[in-house]
Structure formats: C-alpha cells, structure tokens
C-alpha cells in the first residue's frame, strides 16, 4: 500500500516537474532553450552522489555487522547509481556541445570527476564478478565502495585545481537565478529523488527474491 502511495507521489511530482521544465519556466537569456537540460543534469548529478553515499554506508554496515541485507542495499544502490552516473555523463555532454562547442570538455571539473566516479562504480561491480564466491565478492566490493567514496572529495578538488580555478560558486547561491528557475530545479530534484527511492525499494525486493531462490536451489 505504502509503495503505491509513493508511486502516486512520484508520478505527480514527475508530471509537475515536466510541466515546469517544458512549459512554465522562462527560457534562459544567454544559453536559450538548451539550458533546460540543466533541470535533468543537476538531479542526475545529485543522485550520483546520493547513491554512492548509500553504497558507502551499506558497505561499512556490511563489513561491521556481516548481515547480507546491507550488502544487498549497497549493491542495489550502486546499480541504480551507475545508471544515473551514465545519465549525468550523457546529459553533461549534450549540454556541453551547444555551450562550449565540444561534446567533451576536459576543462569541466564536474564532468571529469563524474567520469572518474563512473570508473570507480565499474570497479565496484567488476571486483564482485571476479571473486570466486559471492560472499568474498561482497566483502571486496564493500572495500571498494568505502575507498571509492572517500576518494570523491579529493577527485573533485584536484580536477577543479587542475583546471586552474577555484571551485565555482554553487548554482544555488547565484543571485541571478530566477525564482521560477529555482523552484523548477527544486521540484525536479525532489521528483528524481523520490524516483530513486522507488527504484531502490523495487530493486532491493527483487534482489531479496533472487537471494531466496539461490538458497532454495542450493538447498
């Protein structure tokens, strides 16, 4: 029942967010219509970090408590996170093309650090598949999940410094952002976060069934 409520909430939010993005919000003066990708790009970037945070917490709890549910949580969050990281990279380069004239701009710290995160995510899953048994794979993946998350701030710091500039001010602090744009961004952020929660719950339930079936098969 609760899941259906959440589903309804997500649906409503998503429709409102789409309406805001495509109809209601004013077009940005400098960048034009392209700027509307922004309302998809920021949520995917945020979910990249959120999912990695859940992987991190799940990994620590798994190593400490040794309960399979924490590994399942980390695994599922990582899987959805990998999808959103890929989306963040794709929307990022679609945004870069009209603004900077290239698909991939190495000078953008957010884009390059997202790429590094994407590689860490891949390593998280590869190490699992290379392990000889699932429990060992879970342990190794947890180690990668922890080390990878701790690495994020350093990656962001060094890619920013590599570009030779100080960390740019957050979009939220820019005085120039129209209140309607701000509201649209906030609605999009909430809508995509709720979507993420729904996907995570569904994936965890599915994974639980997979584990049950495996136990049944093994007797």
């Amino acid at each position: 029942m609760k899941r259906y409520l959440l589903l309804a909430l997500s649906f409503t939010l998503m429709v409102v967010s789409l309406y805001f993005v495509f109809v209601w919000v004013p077009t940005e003066r400098m960048m034009g219509i392209v700027q509307r990708i922004f309302y998809l790009m920021v949520p995917t970037g945020w979910l990249t970090l959120l999912s990695f945070l859940i992987v991190f917490i799940g990994s620590i709890l798994y190593l400490v408590k040794r309960e399979e549910k924490w590994d399942i949580l980390a695994y599922c969050s990582g899987e959805i996170g990998l999808v959103f990281t890929t989306l963040a990279l794709i929307t990022g380069s679609i945004w870069a093309k009209p603004i900077w004239g290239v698909w991939w701009d190495w000078g953008t710290p957010r884009l390059t650090s997202t790429l590094v995160l994407w590689f860490i995510y891949l390593a998280y899953f590869l190490v699992r598949s290379f392990a000889s048994e699932p429990s060992r794979g879970a342990r190794f993946a947890a180690v990668v999940g922890i080390v990878g998350f701790v690495d994020i701030p350093i990656v962001i710091l060094s890619t920013t410094l590599w570009q030779g500039m100080h960390p740019p001010p957050l979009i939220f602090q820019e005085a120039g952002l129209d209140p309607r744009m701000m509201l649209t961004l906030q609605v999009s952020l909430i809508a995509y976060t709720v979507l993420f929660v729904i996907l995570l719950i569904a994936r965890v339930l599915l994974k639980n069934s997979e584990v049950d079936i495996r136990y049944l098969k093994e007797g």
Binding site: L126, S132, V143, V147, G148, D151, S158
Partner: peptide, 30 residues
C-alpha cells in the same frame, strides 16, 4: 590494500589496475 584484494580474485593481474587507477587519479594529476 588493493594488491591483497586482487591476489584473491580469479583474474589477479587484471584486477589491480582497474581498481588502482581510478582511485589514484587525483594524485597523478597533482
């Protein structure tokens, strides 16, 4: 840390670079 991890996997030599390089990118840049 990763070397001890990699040696216990099936693909040993291949695993270490995949884990190691993304993590050390910041210090390589530096």
């Amino acid at each position: 840390l990763f070397s001890a991890l990699a040696v216990n996997t099936k693909a040993r030599e291949m695993v270490l670079p995949i884990l190691f390089f993304p993590i050390v990118i910041p210090i390589i840049i530096g």
